[in-house]
């Protein structure tokens, strides 16, 4: 217990150390989530378009989409 509170205090620098780590993680996770969501959105749009287009027009290079 004492160790934990010692860790949280960061030798008196808690209000500088923890925000640094928290913000870094938040930004990196946020960027990852936004990027993944954009990819899923684009893939869904492509799939919808391809299913809407007659087979003759389907480009061959979409076979590896997965």
């Amino acid at each position: 217990m004492e160790n934990l509170s010692q860790l949280l205090e960061m030798g008196g620098y808690a209000r500088f150390v923890w925000p640094s780590f928290g913000l870094t993680l938040a930004v990196l996770v946020g960027l990852l989530v936004v990027s993944r969501r954009a990819l899923k959105g684009a893939e869904a749009e492509l799939a919808a378009l391809q299913s809407a287009i007659p087979g003759r027009l389907q480009p061959a290079d979409t076979a590896d989409e997965a």
Partner: peptide
């Protein structure tokens, strides 16, 4: 990791644009 995700997004988006144009 993120670069590959984003680059895949760009390529898929380019395909979507090309398909729409063809349509």
């Amino acid at each position: 990791w993120v670069l590959m995700l984003r680059l895949r997004t760009e390529i898929v988006a380019a395909k979507v644009r090309a398909l729409r144009l063809r349509q």
